[in-house]
Design a protein around this nucleic acid. Structure first.
Length: 958
RNA sequence: GCCCGAGUGGCGAAAUGGCAGACGCGACGGACUCAAAAUCCGUUGCCUGAAAGGGUGUGUGGGUUCGACUCCCACCUCGGGCACCA
């Protein structure tokens, strides 16, 4: 925006905005305006808390990217800032801070290519992000801006890891307990140690037994090995295509010994407590699906190789189980395979192992499988059924084996048809099902085109003619699935061939990474090669310096070479001496040689608990003072989960971060370290800012900023280009940065524009061209209060005319409610309407009544705090607008003497009439029928019915 | 394939059973200016009409209701999640 000589000196434009914004940002910093008092601990100021409600609002932890911010990033930050500022003006003690999730792969990859230490790179990125965000005027408490890479922070990440390591899950009570209590139960004999008694066990055996119960444990498990990144990944970090979420490298399944967290122990609580959270239903659903709880039964089928156990959600269809299918990797396959089938089975198994996950998941693939040659006994029918192997049965779910009920399961049906296996109906489908498929109703499945899945009367489901015999199971005639399932489970349990069971899709959480830039594990290995906690007094275990950050050079497709983590290169660091506490007795041992853990934690570790550290960032004695935690996060009432009052962030963290942090929080809760059961009580997903991108005829993206629009077509450099729509990003050449907005319009206009575009939870396209509307609005507000040429206030102390006062209070009422509901776009619309009404008054009288000037300024303050603060000061107010009470609407000014009532005939508006406020229904009816337009429209016809909605509308049915 | 969510002017959107399109952008007309930019004022869903006015209109088709963008059923399109989970 150019500023020529003719522009009034005191016009509100980018130049003036920049001055005002810098002035107030400096002042807020000096006066420490946004520091929130704590009830206890190092930041305690108890007197400032008395009589105030608290509010803890939180933005999702950002990674300090080297690319800097674009205008999409701050959307949520502005939203929480506006909400927090509004709540401050309503008396709340608001805690709002922003820290940095600064460990992670990008800085390490950058270090590998440039040789710059990840710490240096990370710190300069954080400095740049802080600068960009400070310019936005966010009301953050700067004291609380922690980074996960700070030693003072990851000391406590390590401490929490040790809390998890030093606890076990007591399934009877459904909670985590200290590992010392498990050891006491083992040594006293209260809890069985298996075949060998505790005292007969060697020290190594005791440690192994205990380790197998820890919530953080080492396990040989199939892991996602990504040679391209030189590390393994959690299931959640692998895409559906079998590639890495970061970098899109191939991922291979293989067995490795890794740190694992027993999140599956918490599956039920993680699932059940979703009901107690104020989260979007879609996110709850995604978590429910990810946890994937299925209720059913485990059933054992006898075979010559021993019992084959299956998991099924439909034990009620057991009578229809006409064959079994094992995963090709199932351990019993070897023993079940007969000599005649050996060659076919071996061929199938080797083919199956060479097929990638991606191919195996292709939905167009036909069912394949091979008969093992062995039979198994269906426990309810006593019949011998063939045992097959097929790759549609996965080793990773249930028991890796299924009973196939082709009449009731699509996959089994397809398999049975392919290999001509018998299909027996156990439920009679309703007539409508047959009609829908155009076939006659029959229990003979040979004509069925597909399996029947649903409720139907049970048939062919009895194993004894005498239904009263205790040995019989009779389902025939039952019409509901729940009863049939219950009966079957009872029968299975009584006969000892099965029992009801629950399985989950959720797997334990793979917690180690073979990288450098992460938290080192506070773990060493003792003389038995058993993991032992580093004593608390030696925390933090800091990262040793390295001269070269490259992981071993691996081809992205090399799936055989083992990973060697970068920390292994520092042999002097790995092999050290330490006075550890005995993992069984807890007694301090003399100095002895130990070997350090060389893996590091995944990036999720820090983000699993950062919100707690915001609350007490400088506490050196504890990760958080219990009183501070209770104040900010404690449950609000009986049955309340506690947690952050408002958590705003993108939907992309629906399962990863939000599930992991809930898990850690619950462990901390069980161990008595926090009073809240959940970390985030209310979750709000902001939408994304998207942008148009343009490509020329070769398919190359061209700079979006230089594209011209003419008659609905788009041109770059004279050539027509095609338009597409997507995320803002470097590759699409459509980035707009906050810095450009600051230069062109100022931070307040930018904030206002982002909030006015639409509801916060919706994605929308960025349009730089539209920003000017909010600039004009602020300019008009400014001009209504300040003379553009002289800078003099144009505010009058005289009475405000009633119509303007009414407009003011209607605006106050609406804005108050919109802000409370985070509908900032409609709040802004109401403020514009008020200002438009004010503009008419100023045009007529030359000044703004003080009452309107002050209230308008206050209402603007959460949205555009700099210009509001400046106007507040110019209005002669010496108090801080940040804490000035938000205006309150006078109810008597919200109603006027008259009201306009629309009159409909058959639901279409034909007239409007003005009636005195408070007119009763009969009066409205009479007025409506007497109305000139109504009489013309009715043309003498007698209305059949007249509906009066009190005080709102009249509808005449003609 | 299964499960969610969304479809309203040229564009971003508002109205959640009671006046469809608040508010903003753009466009058009005007004021100011030597001129342009900036700023200000006015008009602006579509069709029809000189105008007053009339008709029509919230993805499509049906239903409930005195009255439907809003509730119900079916379908279409787009976006997201999951995907052989037994």
């Amino acid at each position: 925006m150019s500023t020529s000589d003719s522009t009034p000196k005191e016009r509100y434009n980018a130049r003036l905005a920049a001055q005002i914004e810098a002035k107030w940002q400096d002042r807020w910093e000096i006066q420490r305006t946004f520091e929130a008092p704590n009830p206890a601990g190092p930041l305690a100021e108890p007197t400032k808390i008395a009589g105030r409600h608290k509010l803890f609002i939180l933005d999702m932890f950002p990674y300090p990217s080297g690319a800097g911010l674009h205008v999409g990033h701050p959307l949520g930050y502005i939203g929480t800032d506006v909400f927090g500022r509004f709540k401050r003006m309503n008396g709340f003690n608001v805690l709002h801070a922003l820290g940095y999730d600064s460990f992670g792969l990008p800085a390490e990859q950058h270090a590998i290519t440039t040789g710059v230490h990840p710490r240096e790179n990370t710190e300069s990125n954080i400095a740049n992000m802080r600068r960009q965000l400070r310019r936005l005027g966010l009301a953050h408490d700067a004291r609380r801006s922690v980074s996960t890479t700070d030693e003072g922070f990851y000391r406590w990440t390590q401490w929490i890891f040790l809390q998890v390591f030093n606890s076990w899950f007591d399934a009877d009570r459904g909670i985590a307990r200290p590992i010392s209590e498990l050891i006491a139960e083992f040594s006293s004999g209260k809890r069985s140690t298996g075949t060998k008694s505790w005292n007969e066990m060697s020290s190594r055996e005791q440690k192994q037994l205990v380790n197998d119960h820890r919530l953080a444990y080492l396990a040989d498990a199939p892991v996602n090995w990504c040679p391209g990144l030189g590390t393994i990944l959690a299931n959640e970090e692998v895409t559906a295509e079998g590639r890495s979420d970061i970098g899109n490298y191939p991922v291979f399944k293989r067995n490795m010994r890794q740190w694992t967290m027993r999140i599956t122990a918490y599956a039920d609580r993680l699932l059940d407590d979703l009901d107690r959270l104020d989260w979007p239903e879609s996110i709850k659903l995604m978590q429910r699906n990810w946890i994937g709880r299925s209720e059913g039964a485990r059933v054992r089928f006898a075979s010559r190789a021993g019992d084959i156990e299956v998991f099924t959600t439909r034990p009620d269809t057991l009578f229809g189980a006409t064959f079994m299918v094992l995963s090709p990797e199932h351990p019993l396959v070897e023993a079940l395979t007969t000599d005649t089938q050996r060659a076919a089975v071996d061929t199938y198994r080797s083919t199956a192992s060479s097929i990638t996950d991606a191919d195996r998941q292709s939905d167009t693939r036909a069912k394949t499988g091979v008969f093992t040659g062995s039979m198994a006994t269906n426990p309810v029918t006593g019949k011998e059924i063939p045992v097959w192997i097929a790759d549609y049965v996965l080793m990773g779910y249930g028991t890796g084996a299924i009973m196939a009920v082709p009449s009731g399961d699509e996959r089994d049906f397809a398999f049975a048809r392919t290999y001509d296996l018998p299909i027996v109906a156990t439920q009679m489908p309703p007539d409508s099902w047959f009609a829908g498929h155009g076939i006659a109703s029959t229990a003979d499945c040979t004509t069925w085109p597909e399996a029947f899945v649903g409720e139907g009367t049970y048939i062919n489901s009895r194993n004894d003619n005498d239904a009263s015999s205790p040995s019989s199971l009779v389902l025939d005639g039952i019409t509901d699935m729940a009863t049939a399932k219950r009966r079957t489970n009872e029968w299975l349990e009584a006969r000892g061939v099965g029992q009801s069971a629950i399985t989950y899709k959720l797997r334990d959480w793979l917690f180690s990474r073979q990288r450098y830039w992460g938290e080192p594990f506070p773990i060493v290995y003792d003389e038995d090669e058993m993991p032992v906690a580093v004593p608390d007094s030696l925390l933090p275990v800091t990262l040793p310096e390295l001269s070269d950050f490259k992981p071993q050079a691996l081809d992205p497709n090399d799936e055989v070479t083992d990973p060697i983590p970068p920390l292994a290169r520092r042999a002097d660091w790995v092999h050290t001496e330490m006075e550890i506490d005995d993992p069984i007795t807890g007694v301090k041992r003399p100095m002895a040689k130990v070997r350090r853990e060389i893996n590091v934690m995944p990036q999720w570790a820090g983000s699993c608990w950062y919100e707690l550290r915001y609350l007490d960032p400088t506490n050196a004695a504890a990760f958080i003072d219990p009183e501070v935690e209770k104040y900010w996060m404690g449950p609000r009432h009986e049955g309340h989960t506690g947690g952050v009052d408002l958590y705003v962030g993108g939907v992309e963290h629906a399962v990863l971060h939000l599930l992991y942090s809930r898990f850690w929080h619950k462990v901390l809760y069980d161990l008595g370290h926090v009073s809240s059961e959940e970390p985030f009580h209310r979750l709000y997903n902001q939408g994304y800012i998207q942008a148009y991108a343009y490509r020329d005829e070769r398919g190359q993206t061209v700079p979006a900023a230089e594209v011209q629009e003419r008659e609905g077509k788009y041109f770059f450099d004279g050539q027509q280009v095609s338009r597409e729509y997507g995320k803002m990003g470097k590759s699409l050449k459509n980035i707009v940065t906050p810095d450009e907005m600051y230069d062109e319009f100022g931070a307040d206009t930018f904030r206002l524009y982002e909030m006015s575009m639409g509801p916060l939870d919706q994605s929308r396209p960025w349009n730089t061209r539209d920003v000017v509307g909010m600039q004009r609005f602020l300019q008009r507000v400014w001009r209504n209060l300040v003379d553009e040429d002289t800078g003099q206030l144009t505010v009058s102390e005289t009475q405000c005319p009633e119509h303007l006062l009414r407009a003011l209070h209607i605006a106050i009422d609406g804005v108050q409610r919109d802000m409370d509901g985070m509908r900032f776009n409609t709040a802004i619309a109401k403020l514009i309407e008020l200002n438009n009404a004010l503009t008419k008054h100023v045009e007529a009288t030359g000044s703004t009544p003080r009452v309107v000037a002050e209230a308008l300024t206050q209402m603007l303050s959460p949205l555009c705090p700099h210009v509001a603060s400046e106007l507040w000061e110019r209005l002669g107010r010496t108090d801080e607008i940040t804490y000035a009470r938000f205006p309150v609407a006078d109810p008597s000014l919200l109603v006027s003497d008259t009201m306009e009532i629309p009159v409909q005939i058959n639901g279409k508006v034909r007239s409007r009439l003005v009636a005195p406020t408070g007119s009763n229904d009969d009066q409205l009816k009479a007025l409506a029928l007497a109305d000139e337009k109504v009489r013309i429209a009715l043309a003498g016809a007698e209305p059949r019915k007249v509906i009066v909605v009190s005080g709102r509308l009249v509808n005449i049915v003609a």
